[in-house]
């Protein structure tokens, strides 16, 4: 069952409180998205750690139902 942009946004926001999330649908097939996530919780973390936090928030959907999620993560300036 493909994920909707809303599902992804809600999961990231509940997993990373205070995150600002922008989702772009890359292919319209429900499993190729790009997400930009800006969160204070990312400050001081490497990109790999930041992305892992997003994957954890997606509770195992990443790589399964969700085939591709191009991630852009940063801490607020």
């Amino acid at each position: 069952m493909p994920m909707s942009p809303g599902d992804i946004e809600d999961m990231i926001k509940s997993g990373i409180p205070g995150a600002r999330v922008t989702i772009r649908d890359l292919a319209g097939d429900g499993d190729h998205y790009a997400a930009e996530v800006v969160a204070e919780a990312f400050r001081g973390k490497t990109r790999v750690q930041q992305h892992q936090m997003v994957y954890e928030a997606l509770k195992g959907n990443m790589g399964g139902v969700l085939h591709a999620l191009a991630l852009q993560t940063s801490a607020p300036d």
Binding site: R47, V48, H51, Q52, M62, G63, G64, L71, Q72
Partner: peptide, 29 residues
């Protein structure tokens, strides 16, 4: 490999034994 690095997707690049990243991170870097 996904368990080894706690990273859910493929591809995964390793340099000198260290996980560097997946496609997004490698492209950005």
């Amino acid at each position: 490999i996904k368990d080894y690095s706690n990273w859910p997707t493929i591809p995964q690049l390793y340099v000198k034994g260290e996980f560097v990243g997946g496609c997004d991170i490698i492209r950005e870097m």
